[in-house]
């Protein structure tokens, strides 16, 4: 069974990323899965508003700006998912009473936007040199009414699906965040978890390559996807 864009069910779209493209930010990165594209910028550790100050650790703030329109309830929920996932890998206890601010601007939306944002934020944090206890990678899945599970769905696939799920794993491939909504059977859930884990492993490999290319001073800072194209296992 082939999808509309001729991908296999377990194939990720081609990934592109670019690091340090902003001047003023402490770290920035762009991450895109074909037409889903996100820019993340990091400011921090900086001074924190006393109301948000935490005595034993840094406050992590995420601002998620959609590509069109203002923030609504749905984007707020996405924002809190991103923050929860990202906060779990930052070593916040190293910078008590400070703020680490993560700004996420969506360029264009075509599904899997939360996953895209988490991956972009991870790259940006690496670029900013903020201490992390692990990397984090995220992937989205959609469940069709005929029982098929699509990896990295486009917006059309997400809208037509019966259920969607977002997963985030750390470098040890431990589950850091999960959100599934819609009707899923037990068996599909197990299957999806395994699929998400193996795909996150590939994204983690991509993130490592991207940072390596950047540090090793590759003539072109833009890393084209090479790891992902052979994704059929």
């Amino acid at each position: 069974m082939v999808r509309i864009d001729k991908r296999n069910n377990n194939q990720i779209r081609s990934i592109e990323s670019e690091l340090a493209l902003l001047n003023k930010a402490d770290g920035s990165a762009k991450f895109s899965l074909d037409n889903s594209s996100v820019l993340a910028a990091i400011y921090g550790p900086v001074e924190v508003n006393p109301r948000k100050e935490k005595i034993s650790k840094a406050t992590v703030e995420v601002v998620f700006t959609p590509d069109s329109g203002n923030q609504n309830y749905q984007t707020k929920e996405q924002e809190s998912l991103i923050r929860n996932a990202i906060e779990s890998v930052i070593m916040t206890m190293l910078h008590p009473r400070t703020l680490i601010s993560i700004i996420i601007q969506v360029y264009s939306t075509d599904g899997s936007i939360v996953s895209c944002s988490i991956n972009a934020a991870c790259l940006a944090l690496l670029d900013a040199g903020i201490e992390l206890n692990s990397l984090i990678a995220s992937i989205s899945l959609s469940f069709n009414s005929d029982g098929q599970i699509y990896l990295d769905p486009t917006m059309k696939e997400e809208n037509e699906s019966k259920a969607t799920a977002i997963y985030a794993f750390n470098s040890q491939l431990k589950l850091m965040m999960i959100k599934s909504s819609g009707i899923i059977t037990e068996q599909q859930n197990q299957e999806a978890l395994q699929l998400a884990r193996s795909s996150c492993e590939r994204i983690l490999a991509y993130i490592r390559t991207a940072v390596k290319t950047r540090i090793m001073g590759d003539t072109e800072s833009q890393t084209k996807d090479t790891v992902m194209s052979d994704s059929t296992k």
């Binding site: 589950l175 850091m176 999960i178 959100k179 899923i184 978890l193």
Partner: peptide, 26 residues
């Protein structure tokens, strides 16, 4: 739901979630 299908599954936290724990909760 009453048919024992999963409708919502949500985990967020600062420590990784063990899959056994998740299964127990399910």
């Amino acid at each position: 739901n009453e048919k024992r299908e999963l409708c919502l599954q949500l985990y967020s936290g600062i420590t990784p979630l063990d899959e056994k724990t998740l299964q127990q909760c399910l």
